[in-house]
Amino acid sequence: MAPPDDDSVPKPLLPQLSRRAFFKGAGASALSATLAPSAHAADPSPPVLGPEPAPLTLSINGRTVTVQADPATTLAELVRNHLGLTGTKIGCDRGACSACTVWLDGEVAASCMTLAFDARGRKVTTIEGLAKGEALHPVQRAFVENDAMQCGFCTPGMVMSCAALVDRNPKCTLDDVKQAVSGHLCRCGTYPNVFKATLAAAQGGGKAKGNT
C-alpha cells in the first residue's frame, strides 16, 4: 500500500506496464544511480526484454554466471536471491542507506538502485569477492582490529566504500573517509571506528598488500 507521499523510484508492477514504459523508467533510474553511462547504452537497438525472466550473464567476483531473471530485478536482489550472496544487504531499497554497496568496474554503486541487466558487461564485485581467498583486504582486517562494526548489518557496504577509497587514494585523510561513507547509515553509531580503521588500512599500505 504505497501511501501518497512515497517518492521512491517507481518499481512498476510488471503486468500493468508496457515494455517500452518499463525500459524508459528503468534506464533513467540506473543512470541516476551510477552516474555513469553503461556500456550497452550506446547500442542503437537493445533487445526488448521482459516481463518474463530472460537469461542474463554477468561477471560477479571474477566468475561468469548466467541466471534467469526478470528485467525488474535489481542487482541487489540478483546477488542475494539468485546467487545466494547475502553479504550484500538491503537496508532501504531506495539508495538512501548504502548497505547494498558493491563495486561496478571498481567503482562503488548502490546495487538496490542498479538493475541487474544494467550490470551486463561490467565487473561486479560484492563483499564476498573482496578478500583474495583467505587474505582479507586491508580494510577488512582493519575493520576487525579497530572494531569498526557493531551489529554488522551495514558493515559489508561500509567495507566496500572504504576499500574503494583506500585502493583509489592510499593517502586519504579523515575528511576523505567521512566523504566516502557519507551515504552509509550505521544505526549502532560506529563511525569513529570506521574512520580509524580506514585510515589505519590506508597507512598500512592499502592496495599494495591486498586487493588488485
Binding site: 553479504g87 563483499i127 582479507l136 577488512q140 576487525v144 559489508p156
Partner: peptide, 9 residues
C-alpha cells in the same frame, strides 16, 4: 565474529 561480518558471511 568480526571476520564473518566483514566478509559478508
Amino acid at each position: 565474529d568480526g571476520i564473518e561480518k566483514v566478509t559478508g558471511k
